[in-house]
Design a binder for these strands. Structure first.
Lengths: 144, 144
DNA sequence: CTAGGTGCAAAAGGTTTGCGGTTAA
DNA sequence: TTAACCGCAAACCTTTTGCACCTAG
């Protein structure tokens, strides 16, 4: 928790209790919770925190490069504190989101961008069934 | 337009005037309009069509594999009638979305998926500046 | 001390839904 | 003929905003 405080300060982000707590909640579980889910988890240990504050904190954390947004089809934005180069896998059944490591560090070679485009970011999302849902087990709802 | 009728029928999708028109509107311009934009364009030639119907039509077209959704960060879903394997480029300035051809047909080789995952789809989105916005020209708002 | 953050409640999009009337096969 | 679709309006969900109070530096 002291580390989190340090991390925020180092980024130039004013380390408030709420921001530290929201970031802490994100680091605690390796899933990709929605703002609402983050709010509920944060609230359990900090009852006075509001949803709007969670959104504010997430926006600040994103701006300072500590979390990334993950957007799925027609679903609420999810947040990911893993800033290493990786892809995402979205299970169509349980809607959990998993990190997928990449072997080579961003092989941009497979795209033919017409000249003039300046690329600053790249996002890869895979869809399908995760091991639990593919094995015929019942659909597991995210979070808990 | 007769072709569109045929296409819908061939897919097993009941070809109604509204669906044909929505699909027609999507094919007419090579951009990636939002539902609202599609609604406005459709309305100009079919004044009685409603936004809900546009959503219904888009949902049906998507279900039958004629269009794909393209989701950007915190923005309205956009729709793309190009069903060939391709990526998307999202301009951070003007927010236009461009299709990006891929050289090799889906090189899945660069991801290390843990066993048990069944992949059914893959979506790649690049972000940055398009030629117009990168060249210092003023930001061009999408559509018109 | 003060710029910026927080909590609250209300509003603003974007999308979905319920229902009576309509239409394509 | 009839199951599916359409138009309308209202609901719904996620996210943003305005404002008074508070807090970290």
């Amino acid at each position: 928790m002291k580390r989190i405080h340090q991390t925020l300060a180092t980024c130039g982000l004013r380390p408030t209790r709420q921001r530290e707590h929201v970031y802490h909640v994100l680091l605690q579980q390796r899933d990709h919770p929605t703002a609402e889910e983050i709010f509920l988890r944060a609230k359990s240990e900090m009852p006075t925190i509001s949803l709007a504050t969670v959104y504010n904190c997430l926006e600040a954390l994103e701006e300072f490069g500590l979390v990334k947004q993950v957007n799925m089809q027609r679903a609420a934005t999810r947040y990911c504190p893993n800033m290493h180069d990786h892809h995402h896998f979205h299970c169509d059944a349980c809607e959990n989101v998993f990190d997928v490591p990449v072997s080579s560090p961003t092989p941009k070679s497979d795209v033919k961008l017409p000249s003039g485009f300046q690329v600053s970011g790249r996002e890869v999302t895979l869809r399908g069934l995760c091991p639990d849902c593919g094995n015929g087990k019942r659909k597991v709802r995210r979070n808990g």
